[in-house]
Design a protein around this nucleic acid. Structure first.
Length: 492
RNA sequence: GGCUCAGUCGCCAAGUGGUAAGGCAACGGUUUGCAAAACCGUCACCCCCGGUUCGAAUCCGGGCUGAGCCUCCA
């Protein structure tokens, strides 16, 4: 199956064809850095990170750009409130954002350009648009004249005339049409400002993305992404100003992720009860859990977040962690150190029946990804793979041949390969630290050893008491053929 | 009011014309000193009404319900 991608422009899934053979340019709208990241901010990055992983696996060389908006009304207001400068606020919030991205294994971003570092490019485009008469200067502001562009509305599928009805647009005498949007804004005293042909000012919201994508990816690139709520007006405006300026098509594919809701309500700054800071969430849940939440359904659908849901996912993920432990016990090799195939052609099933089954699920996984990055379907196959591996592991004994062990390992490599495509299980679990420090681990090993003696002496009453009391402390013991395992239960 | 999108097991969710993946929960069983884990098994006529078709969860029409956008928002 060949890759197909849903395009907001055509509202259909289209075969994926790049501008330049073998290369993909991808631009995703990033944060406005005026307050710390909440969970909703991470949906787009996780999804597009997964998309980049898959495109890379398919053999494309992907260049991924995520912009940082570090000049904006909201930054100005917030900095004043905090008694700090816009620059300092932007730096703090950007650092938080980068921490969250790193924690969630979003590590495929190639460029994170800042708006303030591209003022020259922004001015040049604005001048060009005035020259071509798509834009006009008015009282120190510069506006894009939406009536000059026939195609306006083609992305959000709206009739420009309909837009005006019911839209609450600030009355201003500066604009020719109510729908015109600012490319450049005259700045008030005490606001960040840059010199321009129209006097001191700062860029409008939409123009920075046009400037930075043009600079880093060229006039015509492959994928433009962002949240569904950005389709209008942001992306529509970005699209019309870019194409008006360059005269060539802008992005080939527009991809929009669904929004996250909390208990059914959209996460938004204007609804404080819905805000869940990423840094807080990461204290209670593993990055994998959060990532799976975002990848468990198709990226265009809304996702509802809640503690119950995360706990559910967490429990499901335990299946994988136990399979990794089992693998390490049987083969003396940590799952996390396995080398995964880098492309589809780098793994072959061979003749072993166990591997044939895994190969089937692998095919279905990849087919799902080919179908507009259907991570939900792919995730289902991942569970099938781990179950198949557990069956294989259960059949292994001390008398098993090296060939059987090799097949088991080969199946594990597939699990590594596929989970890596989703960005899961990238880091070894931080087990000893969970309870505090390494001493915890040593003490538990001691208790387990003593309990093993009790069991050997058939003093089950005492052995059970040790286990029960540990359970009460949040430590679960599991007796297996290879000895006793312990783990700390998450508190939620 | 306008423009989009969605409605599949108790909950989450895949499936875009040929008689319903997977996860969580639940219930049997194997295993275990007992547990846990693992494994095996059970658990859905796909919001409603009409239509197209040999055949529809999947296509069309009409309802009902929910979400997003039209205003800053990932």
């Amino acid at each position: 199956m060949a890759l197909r991608v849903y395009n907001t422009l055509s509202q259909t899934k289209e075969p994926f064809q790049t501008v330049a053979p073998g290369r993909v340019g991808m631009y995703v709208c990033g944060p406005t850095v005026y307050s710390k990241s909440h969970i909703g901010h991470m949906v787009g990055p996780v999804i597009f990170d997964t998309i980049k992983r898959y495109l890379t696996y398919l053999g494309y060389q992907v260049s991924w750009v995520v912009n940082i908006t570090d000049v904006d009304d909201k930054l100005i207001v917030q900095a004043q409130k905090d008694g700090t400068t816009v620059k300092e606020l932007a730096e703090q919030v950007t650092a938080d954002s980068l921490d969250c991205l790193a924690a969630l294994s979003v590590d495929g971003i190639d460029h994170m350009p800042r708006a303030t570092e591209h003022i020259g490019e922004i001015i040049a485009i604005t001048e060009g648009l005035i020259e071509k008469e798509f834009a006009y200067e008015s009282g120190g502001d510069v506006y894009f004249d939406v009536n000059k562009a026939e195609s306006y509305g083609k992305l959000s599928h709206r009739d420009p005339d309909d837009l005006m009805v019911g839209a609450r647009i600030e009355p201003t005498t500066l604009k020719r049409n109510p729908g015109d949007f600012a490319l450049w804004k005259r700045s008030k005293p005490d606001e960040p400002s840059w010199d321009s042909p129209w006097g001191p000012g700062r860029p409008g919201w939409h123009i920075e993305c046009s400037a930075m994508s043009l600079k880093l990816l060229g006039a015509h690139f492959d994928i433009h992404g962002g949240g569904l709520d950005l389709v209008f007006p942001h992306h529509e405006n970005e699209l019309v100003q870019s194409e008006s300026y360059t005269g060539v098509p802008f992005a080939s594919y527009w991809m929009h992720n669904g929004l996250l809701t909390k208990d059914g309500r959209k996460i938004s700054k204007s609804d404080p009860g819905t805000i869940v800071l990423m840094s807080d969430l990461l204290r209670d849940y593993s990055p994998d859990t959060i990532r799976v939440l975002m990848l468990s359904s198709h990226y265009r659908r809304p996702i509802d977040y809640g503690p119950t849901r995360l706990a559910e996912i967490d429990r499901g993920l335990q299946t994988f962690h136990r399979a990794f432990e089992r693998f390490e016990e049987l083969g003396n090799e940590p799952f996390h150190q396995l080398d995964a195939p880098r492309t589809r052609a780098d793994w072959k099933a061979g003749d072993a029946p166990a591997l044939r089954e895994i190969a089937e699920h692998r095919t279905r996984f990849l087919d799902a990804m080919d179908d507009d990055f259907n991570t939900g379907g792919a995730l289902g196959e991942l569970f099938e793979v781990v179950h198949a591996l557990n069956r294989t592991a259960a059949a292994l004994t001390a008398a098993s041949s090296p060939a059987d062990l090799a097949d088991y390992r080969s199946g594990m490599v597939v699990l590594k390969e596929l989970s890596q495509l989703l960005g899961l299980f990238q880091k070894p679990p931080a087990k000893p630290e969970v309870g505090g420090d390494a001493l915890t681990g040593d003490l538990l090993e001691l208790l387990i050893e003593l309990r093993a003696r009790l069991r050997k002496e058939k003093n089950f009453a005492m052995a059970d008491e040790v286990r029960n009391r540990l359970t009460g402390l949040g430590v679960v013991l599991e007796d297996g053929a290879q000895g006793t395992r312990w783990r700390i239960e998450p508190k939620h």
